Simulated assay, not measured.
Amino acid sequence: MAETHAVAVWAFDGMAPFELGVVVEVFGLARPELGDLPWYELKVCAEEPGRDLRAVGGFSIRAGHGLDDLAAADTVIVPGVADAGGDVPAALVEALLRAHARGARLVSICSGAFALAATGLLDGRRATTHWRYARALAERHPQIDVDPDVLYVDNGDVLTSAGSAAGIDLCLYLVRTDHGAAVANTVARRFVVSPHREGGQAQFIEAAVRPAGEDDDGVARSMQWALERLHTPLSVPLLAGAACMSERSYLRHFARRNGVSPMRWVIAQRIAASLPLLESGEGSIDEVAAAVGFDSTGTYRHHFTRQMRTTPTAYRKAFTRPPLVREPGTAGGPDAAGGRRELAGAGGILMNTGVHATRPAGPAR
């Protein structure tokens, strides 16, 4: 039998459905666009499988799997907890430790970092969470090096991400790690999101939503212009010219929009463009560097190592291994009962669309 890679996600009473939906979308959805490439086996797990769990929005979720399935998975994902200041269920902590002891990869989204912190596995390590809860995490767990600026942190066996949307970034990163950039890009394209974001959380702390004006349109046009010319020399004057803006105004508007300088963004895009070239195994490192616009291989290696935390050569070797393989799984859960309107979903969940008399509190975010 082919080796499988099981992904388990924690579900609980009072959860908001977005983060669970992200995990189901990435790991539980059928991928006909990938041809014969085997995909993951997703299981939605709860402390009491088969019991209705209230979700924000007036519907319920019934997980088809329990904590034993979570502890047996290869990747375990914990979405935002219900209360960042409350206690993490002891049963969840024990299941996470069992999974880790088996060699599982533990992942948190948003305030799910508090659950991973409760296991002690983040002690002495760098981690992140939503910027609103970074200080609380650091105060409650002073042995953790909390970084409030990044979108996610990879410690190998334990990974943490920032707010809810950063869960998309981290899930795509997991796909990229397991299957390579080309597959991750395909998943991102279907998701209609960028396969790799740059700039961290800092750009969202003060004002996450700004009206799109003429200046922003100019910046967007310059970014698209640059993406079509990554292999050519690029500079702030050229980018500002493409935006029809002065250099000073362009630098201000670009940083406000993206949270980074224009040239730092260009470097990140060039690194991202180099990943599928490295994975293809075609061309030398020198040729890859030149193809994406770096003026020297040394400069490429420097920026690649700084951004990817590995060398181009090591990255190429890592992604020449065979992708993960699994047998096709079966989605669904218990049959509907009692005349209620229930919809089967991926990962072994049932969703009840009935309205509840009381609205549960959403998870901390």
Rank of each mutant, 00 (worst) to 15 (best):
V9W: 03
A11P: 06
M15K: 00
P17R: 01
L20I: 12
V23S: 01
V26I: 14
L29K: 14
R31A: 10
P32R: 03
P32C: 05
L37A: 06
P38S: 06
C45Q: 03
E47M: 04
E48C: 02
S60C: 11
R62C: 12
G66E: 03
G66K: 09
D68A: 13
D68G: 11
L70K: 08
D74L: 02
V76W: 08
G80C: 14
G86N: 09
V88N: 03
P89M: 05
A91N: 05
L92F: 08
V93T: 15
L96R: 07
R98L: 11
H100F: 10
A101F: 00
V107S: 02
L122P: 11
G124F: 09
A127F: 12
T129D: 04
H130M: 04
A138E: 12
E139P: 03
P148K: 14
P148E: 11
N155E: 10
G156R: 06
G156T: 10
D157F: 05
S164T: 15
A165D: 03
L172Q: 01
R176G: 10
D178P: 05
V183A: 02
N185T: 14
T186A: 15
T186I: 11
V193P: 02
S194R: 07
Q201T: 15
F204Y: 15
V209S: 09
D215K: 13
A220M: 11
R221Q: 06
E228P: 05
T232K: 14
S235H: 01
M245W: 01
L251Q: 06
F254E: 00
F254A: 00
F254P: 00
R256N: 00
W265A: 05
I267T: 13
S274Y: 01
L275Y: 02
L275T: 04
P276G: 06
A291T: 04
F294S: 08
F304S: 01
T305Y: 05
R306C: 11
R316Y: 04
K317T: 14
T320I: 06
P323I: 03
P328D: 03
L343Q: 14
I349H: 03
I349C: 13
N352D: 15
P360T: 07
